[in-house]
Design a protein around this nucleic acid. Structure first.
Lengths: 202, 202
DNA sequence: CAGTCCATGTAATAAGTTACATGATTAG
DNA sequence: CTAATCATGTAACTTATTACATGGACTG
C-alpha cells in the first residue's frame, strides 16, 4: 500500500492536481517510484473518500475544471504512521538478473544487447540523479522550494538531506549496476573469444 | 510473464516437482526471484496445458503421489525466445528509498531502525551470495551438477560463468545497499547530534 | 487551425498476496 | 506417536498493466 503513501508524501510539498502527480511519477522520480495515471486518479478518489486529502475544484479556461488535491491532518497522520512503522524485507523479482543467470539459452548477440541496454539505462539514471543532487544543493528544484517555504528554518537541513539521501542511494545502485553490466560484457567477450558455445546459439 | 520463464529455466537442470520448485524460489535464490506456492502450482498446470512441460505422476509411499514436471522442446523454445528478446527497462518501485526520501515524517528512532534492517537484510544477502559463489566454484551445488551432466563439456564454462555473473550482480548490489544504509545512519547521527528537529517527532 | 499539452477518467486483463484447506510420509 | 517435512491445491482479495476514451486550452 505504498502507492497511497507516495502520493501523500508528494502532496506535503504543495496542493497538486492528479495530472501534476502523474507527471511527477513519470519523470526522473520514476527510478524510485513510478505509477501510471490509471492508478493515480482512482487512488486520489479513494483517498478523498477516506478523508486523507481535500479537494478544490478550480476552473481552467472557460469551460474546463481541474481538481486540486491537498493533504489534510488525517493524511499527514497516515503518512507519518507509515514512515514510523518498519517496512519488512521480503520478495525480490529482478528479471534482468534472472535472465543473465541463464544466458546460455540466449545468443551472444542477445546477451550483449541486454547488458548494453542495462548499461545505458543505469548510465542515464546516474546522470539524472547526479544532476538532481546538484539541483537540490542549489535549491533549484521548485517542489523542494515549496516544501521548505512551508516548514520552519530549522527543519530545512533535514528535509534536504533526506531527499539527497534517497537519490544518493540511486546513485550507488546505478554505479553497481553499471559495473555489473561491464563485467558481464567483458565475460561475453572472453567466452566468445575462446569459442565457448551457447545452447541458445543453435 | 517472467514467472513462467523462471520456472522453465529452473526445469532445464532436471525434472522437478512443484514442491521442489517452491523450495527453490523460497531459498537463497529468492533474492533474485521469489514466488509463493500459490503462484507456482497453477502456473505449472497452465504450462502443462500450453504444452511447455511434460508431467509424470509418480507414486510416493503407499497412498500418495507426486507430479514431476520436465521441460519439453516447446518449453525450451519458449525459454530461448524469452532469453533472446530484450527485456525493456521501465518502472521501479522501491519502498525503502521512497520512505528515506521523506524521513522527516518519521522519528530518528524509526528511521534508524529502518536503515539498520536494511543493513541486516543486505549483509545477510551478501553472506549468502558469497557462499553461493564459492559453492559454484567448487561445484558443490547439486542443481548445477545436474545441469552440467546433461550438457556437453564445452558448454560447462559458460553455464557456470553466467550463474556466477547473476550472483555477482547481487553481491555488487548488496554492497551498494550496505554502503547506503551506513551513509544514512551516519547522517541521522549527525542531524540528531546537531539537534535538527523532524516534523515526525511531534 | 493544427499540434501539443492539460486534464481525467474507465474497463479488461494480468499478476501477486494472503489465507484457507488438506492429507501422506518419514525420522526420531 | 508426534513433529517436521513432503506435497498440492483453491479462494478471496489487492495491485498493476494496457488499452480504450474523451475533450478543453494554449501556442505558433
Amino acid at each position: 500500500m505504498s502507492q497511497r503513501h507516495a502520493l501523500l508524501a508528494t502532496l506535503t510539498a504543495q496542493p497538486m492536481t492528479g495530472y501534476e502527480l502523474v507527471k511527477y511519477f513519470d519523470g526522473s522520480f520514476a527510478y524510485v517510484w513510478s505509477a501510471p495515471h490509471s492508478q493515480i486518479y482512482p487512488e486520489l478518489r479513494r483517498m478523498e473518500r477516506d478523508g486523507l486529502v481535500g479537494v478544490e475544484v478550480v476552473p481552467r479556461g472557460e469551460r474546463a475544471e481541474k481538481r486540486v488535491y491537498s493533504i489534510n491532518e488525517a493524511g499527514l497522520a497516515e503518512l507519518q504512521r507509515w514512515e514510523r512503522e518498519p517496512t519488512p524485507y521480503q520478495s525480490e523479482r529482478d528479471p534482468y538478473r534472472l535472465k543473465a543467470a541463464h544466458f546460455e539459452q540466449a545468443t551472444y548477440e542477445a546477451a550483449r544487447h541486454q547488458l548494453q541496454e542495462h548499461l545505458r539505462h543505469f548510465a542515464r539514471a546516474l546522470r539524472d540523479w547526479e544532476q538532481m543532487l546538484a539541483d537540490l544543493d542549489a535549491r533549484r528544484v521548485s517542489l523542494l522550494r515549496r516544501r521548505l517555504e512551508q516548514r520552519p528554518e530549522e527543519e530545512h537541513e533535514a528535509i534536504v538531506a533526506f531527499r539527497k539521501l534517497a537519490f544518493r542511494g540511486e546513485v550507488l545502485k546505478a554505479r553497481a549496476e553499471i559495473a555489473w553490466a561491464e563485467e558481464g560484457l567483458a565475460l561475453l567477450d572472453e567466452l566468445e573469444g575462446k569459442g565457448v558455445p551457447l545452447r541458445g546459439e543453435r
